[in-house]
Design a binder for these strands. Sequence first.
DNA 1: GTCCGACTTCGAGTGCACTCCAAGTCAAGG
DNA 2: CCTTGACTTGGAGTGCACTCGAAGTCGGAC
Lengths: 124, 124
Amino acid sequence: MTSLSIAEAAEQTGLTAHTLRYYERDGLMLRSVERASSGHRRYTDDDLRWIQMVTRLRSTGMPIRDVRRYAALVREGEGNEGERLALLLAHREVVERQLAEVTSHLRAIDHKIAIYENKVAPGA
Amino acid sequence: MTSLSIAEAAEQTGLTAHTLRYYERDGLMLRSVERASSGHRRYTDDDLRWIQMVTRLRSTGMPIRDVRRYAALVREGEGNEGERLALLLAHREVVERQLAEVTSHLRAIDHKIAIYENKVAPGA
DNA sequence: GTCCGACTTCGAGTGCACTCCAAGTCAAGG
DNA sequence: CCTTGACTTGGAGTGCACTCGAAGTCGGAC
């Protein structure tokens, strides 16, 4: 089991060290990250896997407070899988609606682009 | 040609009156919206069409400052279609990259959902 | 004539998610 | 022993995009 410094964890996850500390103090981690005798954080593989899940939720637009609720459920342990599932399904709905909206707006923009392409380089 | 009050324009566009005023003073409109003798804004069909374009750009994630630049180009009039096109194409790239990222993250979340569905109602 | 409601302006406030700073600690190298 | 560099903390600051509040104006209904 490897264990990484915050700088290494930052590089692995694509987040900054600032953000990793912020996530931890904001209750997004499953538990406090372990410390070396120096007090420096040591990230385990489990930590990294969890951070990856957080990243997935975040970059699909889930607000921090919902990620925190999800983390709390997972932290509680077995027995609340129904709630976790409900939370993820609700998020999924939101994401799909958003994807559909963005896609349709993008199509309209593409139409505009086509018009300009004809103006700028007709017949290109 | 209809001409709408700010409340009607808000309803038509799905924005709030506050946001319409904000867009105007932030330079996102092509020109100052006309006024009734009372000083109240009167939105024309052209205004509404432009606001729709702004909404498309915004809800695909274009920052306000880029919308402002695009508005400035359109305001300048003919001759800079190349620049407008470049701006829209650059935006298109960003949006597509983002769509791809969100889609792939969503797939990973779906996988997690499937796991929970099996746990919660196995064989459902 | 005055009341109401929809508007006006300017500027301040909000919420979100970071992002940064200052001052301090620690282990290792020279 | 002293310096260096990577870390630590609490709290403050930033950027974005709204969002709201206060005070004032205007036209029409009663």
